[in-house]
């Protein structure tokens, strides 16, 4: 097991290996994401019972909670990638840093938007400036903006990578603040309904939520792998393996095999 992990770690040093290995994973994750998100959303909108206090508006939970949880996970993955880039200078870590930011940014914005839309019928307001959960999530969005702007503004790719890695690691401090904000401060935002040890919901309500959460993680995998493969092609365009892959791909398409490299 230890040897296998060590071998995998060394292989991750090769963008070429990652590019070729991840092609089938990308499609399976995409398919799984579509199936899970369709099932969870249909279940949540049609079969899950209405909440006894919030009524039908509670159904926004099935889109809001998966987006904000995965948005935070994306940021944690950014922090880990940043650490790997700074310590081991692994090329793939920089590729991952660049590929994950737009997806995390979109999910955070979506989480804030769906939360605001849910807040109106539940709390009577779209936004509350004194709510710690809302403000810490807004800070997460600003961190994503910062990472995106930093990458775009520096002409040296190496400096941009290092800068993003440092910002990603520093910004990690915001993740526990988001998580525990509802416990540390008195907020308008409700406490956590689902934790690893306790679920305060009946199964007919939380099963579609877990399905959508899993679907959102699969979508994260699909989008990030696709974006990483694009970035690898861009960076390695002058190498012989990319030329060979393009020639092989053309031949494969001719033989009716679309992604058989």
């Amino acid at each position: 097991m230890k040897d296998m992990l060590k071998r995998l770690w060394h292989r991750l040093g090769s963008p070429r290996w990652f590019f070729q290995m991840m092609a089938p994973w990308q499609w399976w994750l995409g398919l799984l994401a579509a199936l899970l998100l369709l099932t969870g959303t249909f279940w949540g909108l049609v079969y899950a019972p209405a909440d006894y206090q919030q009524g039908e508006s509670f159904r926004i939970i099935y889109v809001h909670v998966p987006t904000v949880i995965v948005a935070q996970s994306v940021y944690m993955a950014l922090g880990i990638s940043g650490f790997v880039l700074l310590v081991w200078r692994m090329k793939l870590a920089d590729v991952a840093l660049k590929a994950m930011v737009p997806f995390g940014m979109a999910l955070t914005a979506l989480g804030l938007f769906t939360g605001a839309v849910w807040g109106r019928p539940t709390w009577g307001t779209y936004w509350e400036w004194t709510d710690a959960r809302l403000i810490s999530t807004l800070i997460l969005l600003f961190l994503y903006f910062g990472l995106y702007a930093l990458r775009e503004s520096l002409s040296s790719a190496e400096a941009a990578g290092r800068g993003c890695a440092i910002l990603a690691i520093v910004g990690l401090v915001n993740i526990p603040v988001i998580k525990y904000s509802v416990e540390w401060w008195t907020t308008l935002h409700q406490g956590e309904t689902i934790t690893l040890t306790r679920i305060r919901m009946p199964p007919e309500m939380y099963i579609p939520l877990l399905i959508n959460l899993l679907g959102m993680y699969c979508l994260f995998g699909y989008v990030v792998i696709a974006r990483m493969r694009n970035e690898i092609l861009r960076r390695e365009r002058e190498t012989t393996w990319v030329a060979a892959w393009l020639r092989g791909k053309k031949d494969d398409v001719g033989n009716g095999v679309i992604d058989g490299h």
């Binding site: 009524g55 508006s57 979109a106 769906t114 839309v117 109106r120």
Partner: peptide, 22 residues
């Protein structure tokens, strides 16, 4: 959606559009 249709469909509609765009 028990008079909450606007909020529910707005949240789902915008999410669908953003995720599809990505």
């Amino acid at each position: 959606m028990g008079q909450h249709g606007f909020y529910v469909w707005l949240a789902y509609g915008v999410s669908l559009v953003v995720l599809l765009l990505v």
